[in-house]
Nucleic acid binder design. Structure first.
Ligand code: ZN
Ligand code: ZN
Ligand code: ZN
Ligand code: ZN
Lengths: 176, 176
DNA sequence: ATGAGGAATGTAACGTTATACAATCACATG
DNA sequence: CATGTGATTGTATAACGTTACATTCCTCAT
């Protein structure tokens, strides 16, 4: 609902967010996938973990831990920081959510189940975030890393800019 | 956690950084380059800004704002957070330093003067950080971005892993 | 069933990182 | 000199994250 754009965009099937889509299925599908995944791996998909993932799935943008905590409180869960951080740690550890380092905030994974190195595009105008598959840095930076003998274990790839929806609405705001 | 060195580097002659080099010139050259650059762009390279850059240049790793603040205090500068953050903001804004988002910490730019999109390799064992030129994400993620109409303005590319020096010393610690 | 042990949760207190806003200073202009 | 303007500094507080410990909830072997 946060994107809320009524613009049609180019009808192309984009590999990542920003595109107009039937958001109703996002939450349901995401929760179902997580449930399946946890069952398969023998992980406990507890109520609070499920709720946090649901909260994240409701938005295609990153939410701070304390924003999540507020919503947990409203739902009758604990109201202290560890409640949110523990659930988030679980989700991140098992690939159901990601942390956006640039924002100190979290977002539901858009490609659960697949083993991936995520890359993100963050709109500075509407705060929406899209996740792309990214062999990217592993390939390009990876070459440089191999050259000097650095062993990459994890990558953070985040692009900040203006999403197609916002660019259309405010083409002038170019400078940073 | 950023304050106080906890890792035992004393064993070797390589304090920080991946490659052996004459570190004496790092600080002097970096300060000289910054001075020139500020003069050319009519920027005020004030004592506190200069000091912060000097502090950063002394290490090839990222320092937290409060670690820097501690050192500023020791040198007789102000001791309140904004003193450090304002100097850091200046240095980052003008390409003399970078923020490592993954660490919430700062490092002197290794390629001042050049207009670049930096990428970093962070050793999780010795905390050293190496900066690489990175057309990387602009090229690879950039392709994906163009495909959907996202305009990239800034990129964060950070690889976490084990540097060549540490890999040599502790080849066993592979776990992720 | 039952009690032991480990995982998960609830709660309080604390630590770290970052910014908002008011006050002040430096300087140019009338 | 008086005054407006923009940069700089000082103070308080917001935002983000962790530690510690008591309690509850599973699971499993007696
Ligand atoms: Zn959706
Ligand atoms: Zn946008
Ligand atoms: Zn050096
Ligand atoms: Zn290392």
């Amino acid at each position: 609902m946060t994107s809320g754009s009524s613009k049609g965009l180019e009808g192309t099937a984009t590999p990542v967010g920003f595109a107009h889509h039937d958001h109703g299925t996002c939450v349901a599908d995401g929760l179902a996938a997580a449930e399946t995944r946890c069952e398969k791996k023998n992980l406990r998909f507890t109520p609070v973990r499920r709720k946090v993932l649901e909260i994240l799935l409701q938005e295609h943008r990153a939410l701070g831990a304390y924003t999540i905590l507020d919503r947990l409180r409203d739902e009758g869960f604990g109201s202290q920081p560890p409640v949110a951080y523990r659930a988030l740690d679980f989700l991140v550890a098992h690939g159901l959510a990601h942390k956006i380092e640039r924002l100190n905030a979290f977002i539901a994974c858009a490609h659960p189940g697949e083993n991936h190195a995520p890359a993100f595009m963050i709109c500075r105008l509407c705060d929406s975030v899209a996740e792309a598959h990214s062999v990217v840095a592993k390939g390009a930076l990876g070459t440089a890393a191999r050259a000097i003998g650095f062993r990459i274990e994890r990558t953070v790839v985040e692009a900040e800019g203006v999403c197609p929806n916002c660019a259309e609405k405010a083409p002038e705001k170019v400078s940073v």
